[in-house]
Nucleic acid binder design. Structure first.
Length: 529
RNA sequence: GGUACUUUGGCCGAGUGGUUAGGCACCGGUCUGCAAAACCGUCUACGGCGGUUCGAAUCCGCCAAGUACCUCCA
């Protein structure tokens, strides 16, 4: 049973889809007027996990994540000017050129982070008609009014029939007292009213024809229009960053409810912010670090470059509803942990069952040492009897591994079911890693069944659900190159046997100089680039 | 000012009534021609004060510190 925290109720609720086995999920995507930064990675990864997990639970998921390329107003000197248009003028580019550029950049970063593409990725600019229609519906329902070519949502009237503020826990009366004076509010009846359609000023480049004026849709309209278009008037999950809770999602609820007479969304989910020195990382504070800067290490706050997988792992090590404080040190800690975990996972693939074989125990008493000749060496040849038995006297420690393995899958599953608690899943994998290493070192036994289960759980949770994978390039020639390195290191191994330290050290030193990390093990070697 | 939230060991970060979260670092050990790496083990904290309870990091109250939203923002 999957439980998800619903912002509406402030409680974890059992997830029951409206139309099983189908699940509709909408997540607020990026505004494409700047390079994607760490803050963009969090919702993308959070809801990627949910997307993957729902599919694992055998739901048929339609995942919609929008691209905002129109309509956000800026409240500064250029008040009322569209963000995209502003950036376009500065760069002397067509607005859609800017949109395309940053959309591509975003996609590239998401792919690097192993974030699966959504089922549908609608652009706001491609759904102007739908937004005009939606606005008309609200007008027809009587919850909006036209004023000087713009259309505003009548929050006060809406609040009499429904309740405005139920998501963020605000009430309109208080807001009327406390909201500040803003430019352009003279057109509005109340300061809390918000634009559904905005008339474009003469210098405004992005504009569309509508019954009320030539202009552009209000900032919250795209999600209402596109969400209901692709997922229906009612759908299961709507996600996004916590900073969107108010006003964006609150207004969205009001719009949809006003137009359709009912709530559209069952489960509202919000990921928390990434902080830097305890402060939110964001555009307005100018303290954000772009994903590219992470990947290249080119930022004053970074001691080094960090791989996309490290970023992903770092984010998954915190629960999605907690703030997570970024620092180079914290990332370095995650990086090391991830490395160890992935190395163990690679090791697991080479592991052979030993000891504690239920029925066919005691078949073959060959030594475990034969398998320990190096992780990168191919040693997967499974004999028909398959089982290599570990020497007696290790049976006791074998029981230890059993206890830590028992229920591993179940523990991971409960963690995921408990509002996607990926930190707990990870801690369980680290526990299992201990067993893997003990078996690898010949200090514990593992049966064939246990081994298969272990491999299966790691594959499922680490790779399929959390989307963590080796970053090593997969391509033609890679295998040949790996074998070449193995060959060199085997020559070194021979040299060592002959106590030819000169040759041995030369191979190691020169490979190290090329960037290889050589690890001598008891019976062979491991290496990585 | 309003609303909501947070405060966990050297650092990051789970955990909502009773057993060791986990990671990183440190320290100890194993392995080793040397070196590195790897592996194993150790380190038992919960902002302060009071209350409820047989028992609280976990529930309640007060205090302190901090953050977010109220304006574009993931």
């Amino acid at each position: 049973m999957l439980f998800l925290y619903n912002t509406l109720s402030r409680k974890k609720e059992m997830f029951v889809p409206l139309h099983e086995p189908n699940v509709g999920m909408y997540v607020c995507g990026p505004t494409v007027y700047g390079d994607p930064h760490l803050g963009h990675a969090r919702p993308a990864i959070t809801f990627d996990i949910l997307f993957r997990y729902l599919q694992h639970l055998e739901y048929k998921v339609r995942y919609v994540r929008n691209i905002t390329d129109v309509g956000h107003l800026e409240n500064d000197a250029d008040a009322g000017e569209d963000k995209i248009a502003k950036k376009a003028r500065l760069d002397q580019l067509e607005p859609m050129e800017v949109v395309q550029y940053y959309t591509n950049r975003y996609h590239k970063a998401m792919e690097a982070l192993n974030v699966l593409p959504p089922s549908i990725e609608p652009h706001a600019s491609g759904h102007i008609l739908e937004q005009i229609e939606f606005t008309q519906k609200i007008l027809d329902a009587g919850y909006a009014y036209e004023s000087e070519g713009s259309v505003y949502f009548d929050v006060e009237k809406y609040n009499k029939d429904y309740r405005y503020g139920k998501l963020s826990g605000r009430n309109v009366e208080e807001m009327l007292e406390t909201t500040r004076e803003l430019d352009g509010q003279s057109e509005k009846r109340r300061s809390v009213d918000f634009a559904l359609w905005k008339k474009a000023s003469p210098e405004h480049i992005m504009r569309w024809k509508a019954p009320w004026s030539e202009g552009f849709p209000g900032w919250h309209m795209e999600c209402s229009a596109m969400g209901t278009k692709y997922l229906g008037e009612e759908f299961d999950i709507h996600g996004g960053g916590m900073d969107l809770m108010f006003p964006h999602h609150e207004c969205e609820i009001a719009q949809s409810c006003a137009a359709l007479g009912k709530d559209s969304v069952r489960y509202w989910m919000h990921n928390n912010m990434i902080t830097i020195g305890g402060q939110k990382m964001g555009k307005s504070l100018g303290n954000f670090i772009t994903l590219e800067q992470f990947f290249t290490g080119k930022h004053p706050l970074l001691n080094k470059a960090f791989s996309p997988m490290t970023i992903r792992f770092f984010i998954l090590q915190a629960h999605y509803r907690s703030t997570v404080d970024f620092s180079s040190e914290a990332l370095e800690a995650s990086e090391k942990g991830l490395e160890r975990l992935l190395e163990g996972y690679a090791r697991l693939q080479k592991l052979k069952p030993n000891g504690k074989q239920p029925a066919t125990a005691g078949v073959d008493k060959s030594s475990l040492n034969q398998t320990a000749s190096g992780v990168n060496q191919v040693s997967l040849s499974q004999t028909a009897s398959g089982v290599e038995q570990f020497s007696s006297g290790q049976v006791a420690s074998g029981d230890k591994s059993e206890s830590s393995l028992a229920g591993l899958r179940q523990r991971c599953e409960s963690a995921m079911n408990d509002d996607l608690n990926t930190p707990i899943v990870i801690s369980n994998l680290f526990d299992a890693l201990k067993t893997i290493n003990l078996v690898h070192d010949g200090k514990a036994g593992i049966s064939e069944n246990e081994l298969a289960e272990l491999k299966s759980v790691f594959k499922l949770y680490l790779e399929d659900l959390m989307g963590i994978q080796e970053e090593a390039a997969q391509g033609e020639g890679v295998e040949a190159y790996q074998k070449a390195v193995d060959l060199l290191l085997n020559i070194r191994l021979d040299a060592k046997k002959n106590k030819d330290w000169a040759t041995s050290d030369r191979i190691r030193n020169e490979l190290s100089a090329l960037g290889f990390e050589i690890k001598d093990t008891k019976d062979g070697f491991e290496w990585r680039l």
